[in-house]
């Protein structure tokens, strides 16, 4: 077992452990803060795959943006501790079946795919990603930004004070 494997195991344990807290904790605030470690763990996995730009973006968007918004939202909720998050209709058998089906399909996809192996890690991904965005994938990139702009305008519309009210 090399150093790389040991580091990966620690990171994987932290990621999965904190993800379990997110799902299982009875207090919303712990769930929200545990997400911090999950997001960081995923970022470290990106680093270990040689995707440095993606890792920084993951931290920037998820920790710097989404997690903070989530925390603000959680703090505005009414009851934070000892929540019963289970839904009224608790269906054990269908739930287990679906979980099992998702797990098997993901596991099969991971083991059966012929992954393209790269011997040497890609030197710098930032430039490649930027070029691909601006040349080959320009249309999806622009469509995504229009979608975000629409969401922004929609949010501004919703919170705007009505002049007649």
């Amino acid at each position: 077992m090399s150093v790389f494997d040991i580091v990966f195991c620690i990171v994987a344990l932290v990621t999965i452990g904190s993800a379990a807290i997110v799902v299982l904790s009875r207090s919303l605030i712990y769930s929200a803060f545990a997400l911090l470690f999950t997001f960081f763990g995923v970022a470290i996995v990106y680093v270990m795959l040689g995707a440095d730009f993606l890792a920084a973006t993951q931290v920037l968007v998820y920790v710097g943006g989404i997690l903070i918004l989530l925390l603000f939202g959680v703090m505005l909720t009414h009851r934070l501790y000892n929540l019963n998050l289970k839904t009224e209709t608790f269906q054990l058998i269908p739930g287990l079946l679906i979980a099992l089906a998702v797990f098997t399909s993901l596991a099969l996809a991971a083991t059966q795919t012929h992954w393209k192996r790269v011997e040497k890690p890609v030197a710098a991904t930032t430039e490649t990603i930027g070029k691909l965005f601006m040349e080959e994938y320009l249309l999806p990139f622009e469509i995504a930004s229009i979608l975000l702009l629409v969401a922004l305008i929609g949010a501004a519309m919703l919170v705007r004070r009505r002049s007649d009210a």
Binding site: L36, D52, F53, V59, L60, V63, G64, G65, T126
Partner: peptide, 14 residues
Amino acid sequence: LNIGVLYVVAISSL
């Protein structure tokens, strides 16, 4: 790091 400045911006959100 070749993502130097982006790294600082990202890690400061911690």
